[in-house]
Amino acid sequence: MFLDPLTATLILSGVLAFTALITWFIYSVVKSNPTNVSEEFKEPYLAGEPTSTLSRIDAPSNTLFWGFIYGLSRKLYHYLRERMHSGILNEWGEYMSVYLGLLSLIGLLFTALILLRGG
């Protein structure tokens, strides 16, 4: 059915929520009940190493971000690490705000371009 973009977005968001709810219901009904779980199963899997080898088990949230930057470009990672990174979480938040701000700006520019060109 041909719909306007807003209605289509609303209906598809509704479909997402509805399907997620139904899947949760099916999952709750059919999944196996927890049996006697051993203590070993409750610890993180470290390929046989004890958890005492880790300095902390819950990795800090910015590890994911720096791992991502390192994976994407080592040069960029080292540049950012040397120039900007202090290990303070608030600063990471600041970098992310700047990054998302830049993305929003690019998005706005593209929207403006499309509107100027008449769709």
């Binding site: 880790l54 990795a59 994911l64 994976g71």
Partner: peptide, 15 residues
């Protein structure tokens, strides 16, 4: 959380 998970997830995010 798990060091391998985090490494894998950051690699996945990079890709």
């Amino acid at each position: 959380p798990n060091p391998f998970t985090l490494k894998g997830a950051s690699r996945y995010a990079s890709v």
